[in-house]
Design a protein around this nucleic acid. Structure first.
Lengths: 337, 337
DNA sequence: GTTCGCTGTGCAAGCGTTTCCATGCCGTCC
DNA sequence: GGACGGCATGGAAACGCTTGCACAGCGAAC
C-alpha cells in the first residue's frame, strides 16, 4: 500500500508538505506542489480516507436515511442526493429502514452515531427531539427532506396544503363525491405524511361543506399495486360510486387509473383521479397531479448541508417550502352525472 | 466525546481489555466483560469506527455500485442488500452511477480505492479486468450481481438464456411475428445485459427458423414510459403488426401493455406480451414474465461476500446461476390470426 | 516442589493521516 | 545594516482505537 511517506520521499519533501499540497490546506509553493502532484500520480497514491478522517475529524460522507428505496419519491431523492454528493466529492452511506420501525433505533444509535458521517439527511422521517438533539450535540448537522422534522432545517412541501389543493381542484370541477386513497392507519411517527395528507383532504371537503365518508377513505401503502387493489374495491360498486378520487401519491393514483380502466370505467368521464408527486409515468398516462420536485429537493438539501458543514452556525430550524405545481392533465374533469 | 479510556477508567481496567470485551476478539473473563459492558452503556460509549478501522484495517462497510436506483431491478437489489448488510452490522456506501459513464472512472479510482469499504458489490456493471484486479489487489473482494463480470464471483441469471426462454414461450404458443423492445443501441460495457437479451431473442427466433426483422427491434431505456413510447410505434400500424412482443424488462412490458390498451388492442387476443423480471406490478396486470428474484440475489451476494471477508481464499471466479421462473399469466396466448 | 501451559490482563507500538508549532529564509523597511 | 514580517517547510504530536507481546497467577502433571 503506497502511503503518504512514499510520496513525500519521492518528491523530496516531508509528509506535512504532501498533505498540504494535496489537500489544499495551508500554503505550498507552486513548484513543490507540482512535484508532489507528480509523485503522487506516479505512485498512484490515494490517501487513506480512514486515516484522514481520524486526523482531521472530517469524513466526506453523508448519511441518508430513507424509509424505503423502492418507492418513486424516495428513489428520486436518493438519486439526486447521490448525484449532488458525488459532484461534491462526498460519499453517501445509505440507511434503508425498509419500512421497519424496529431498525430505526439501531440505525440511529449504532450506525449514525458511529461517527462516520459528517451530517445526516433523513427523508420523510420524523426524529424525536431527543434523537435530533443527540445528533446535533455530537456535531452532526441534520437537513431533512419531505415531512415534518420539528427543530431541524428541512426542505419539504406542505403536505396538508397540497392535499387540500388537490382536493379543491376536484371540488372546483364540481365534484361532490370525492374519495381518498392514502394514509396508513398506523399512526407511526415514521410516516406521518400519509395522515397529514388525509387531513388536508378532510379540511378541503369540510371547507366546501362536503361530507367525508369513512368508507371512501382507503388505506394503501403508496405503491401502484396497492392503489389498484383499493381502487377496485372503491370503484367496484356500480351504484353509489364516488365521482372522483384523490390519491396521496401518484403511484396509487396510477393504480387507481388502471383499476378504473379494468372495471370498464372511463377516466375522467366516469371518475376523475388526481395524485400527488409528479411521477413521470403519470405524464404518459395523462394523470392530473400536484407535482413536487424531489430531484430539486434532494439537490438543495445537499447544497445546504454542505454549506452548514462549512459554517455550522448558520444551521436554522426552519422548513424551506419546496416548490409544487398543479399539473392538470386528462384524468380530471367536470363530473358528467 | 466519550472515548475508550473513559470506559476503561470507569470499569477499572485497561483500554485493551475494554476493546477486547466489546469487540469479542481475545479472551476476557465473564466478570470483567460484564463490568465493561455496564460502564460502556452507562457512558453511552460508541467506538469511533474511524479509529477502529484505522487500527484494525476492517471497516464494516460495503460499497454497492449501481447504474441507477430508479429502476425496479436495482431498487430491489439495493433494498435487499441494504437489509442483509444491516442485519450483519455493516454499513452500505452507495455509488449511484446514474447511467452516466463519466462517473465510472472517478467512482472507481477515487471512491472505492479510498479504502473505506471492505468489499464491493457491483450491480449489472462490467468492470474491466484491470479495474477488477486493482480492487482485488488492494484486498477488496468483489461479488457481483446481475450481469457478466469476467473474473469475479457473481450471482446472476443467464441473460441470453432467459431471453431465449421468453421468446420460445411465444414461439411455442404459435407466434411467428415476434417483436422485441429492449437493448440500448449504445454498446456500453456498462449495460451489456440489454444486448445479451437481444441476442437471446435473436437466437430463439433463428432456432425456430423465424426472421428477426430489424424494424421490430426497438430500443428503450427499461422504464415503463419508454416501453409505452416504443410500443405505440410498434403497435400503431394496423397492418403488418407483430402478434407478440418480448420486452427485456417487465417495466417495458408493462409500458407495452398500457400502450396496447390505449390503442384499443386486446391483450393477449390481438397481441401477446412477455417481459423479464418478476415486477410486482406485473402480477396485478396479469403480465407473463420470466421472473428473476433480485431480493434473493442481493441477499445471497451479501452472505457470500461476508463469508469471503472471513476467508478471502475462498473467493472464486464463477457465476452462481440465479433462479428464474417462467410465470405464465394472462398477457400471452395463442395468436388468433 | 518444579515445571509447564493456559488464562486474563496491561503496556505500548502501531494504523496513516493532519496540523500545530518552530525554524530558516528572503525581502523590505527604517 | 539590523530588525521584522511573511512565506515555505519540517518535526512531531495528536486522532482513538486494536493487537502483539510480556507477564502474573494458578492448577495440573510429573
Amino acid at each position: 500500500m503506497v502511503g503518504i511517506r512514499d510520496v513525500a520521499h519521492r518528491a523530496g519533501v516531508s509528509t506535512a508538505t504532501v498533505s498540504r499540497a494535496l489537500s489544499g490546506n495551508g500554503r505550498v509553493s507552486a513548484g513543490t506542489r507540482a512535484r508532489v502532484l507528480e509523485a503522487a500520480s506516479e505512485l498512484g497514491f490515494v490517501a487513506s480516507s480512514t486515516a484522514s478522517s481520524l486526523a482531521s475529524g472530517r469524513h466526506r460522507n453523508i448519511g441518508v436515511v430513507v424509509p424505503s428505496v423502492a418507492r418513486w419519491y424516495y428513489s428520486q431523492i436518493v438519486d439526486s442526493v447521490a448525484a449532488a454528493l458525488l459532484r461534491a466529492g462526498y460519499d453517501l452511506t445509505l440507511y434503508n429502514l425498509n419500512d421497519d420501525a424496529a431498525h430505526r433505533e439501531s440505525v440511529l444509535s449504532e450506525f449514525l452515531l458511529r461517527q462516520r458521517c459528517d451530517g445526516v439527511i433523513p427523508v420523510s422521517l420524523e426524529l424525536g427531539r431527543d434523537e435530533l438533539d443527540q445528533l446535533l450535540s455530537v456535531g452532526k448537522p441534520v437537513v431533512g427532506i419531505g415531512g415534518p422534522l420539528p427543530g431541524a432545517e428541512t426542505y419539504s412541501v406542505d403536505d396538508h396544503e397540497i392535499a387540500a389543493l388537490a382536493t379543491e381542484h376536484l371540488i372546483r370541477l364540481g365534484h361532490r363525491r370525492i374519495a381518498h386513497i392514502g394514509g396508513y392507519e398506523v399512526a407511526e411517527k415514521d410516516f406521518r405524511i400519509a395522515g397529514t395528507r388525509r387531513h388536508g383532504y378532510e379540511a378541503a371537503l369540510k371547507g366546501a361543506g362536503l361530507e367525508a365518508r369513512r368508507s371512501w377513505q382507503l388505506a394503501a401503502d403508496f405503491t401502484i399495486q396497492s392503489g389498484m387493489v383499493e381502487a377496485r374495491q372503491l370503484l367496484g360498486h356500480p351504484h353509489d360510486r364516488p365521482t372522483a378520487v384523490f390519491c396521496a401519491s401518484d403511484e396509487m393514483a396510477i393504480g387507481a387509473l388502471l383499476a378504473a380502466r379494468e372495471l370498464g370505467l372511463r377516466v375522467p368521464d366516469d371518475v376523475s383521479i388526481i395524485g400527488i408527486d409528479g411521477h413521470e409515468l403519470g405524464e404518459a398516462l395523462g394523470l392530473t397531479t400536484v407535482a413536487q420536485f424531489p430531484q430539486e429537493q434532494g439537490r438543495r438539501a445537499v447544497e445546504r448541508l454542505l454549506q452548514v458543514l462549512q459554517d455550522p452556525s448558520t444551521l436554522q430550524s426552519v422548513n424551506h417550502p419546496a416548490r409544487t405545481a398543479l399539473v392538470v392533465r386528462a384524468s380530471t374533469a367536470t363530473p358528467t352525472a
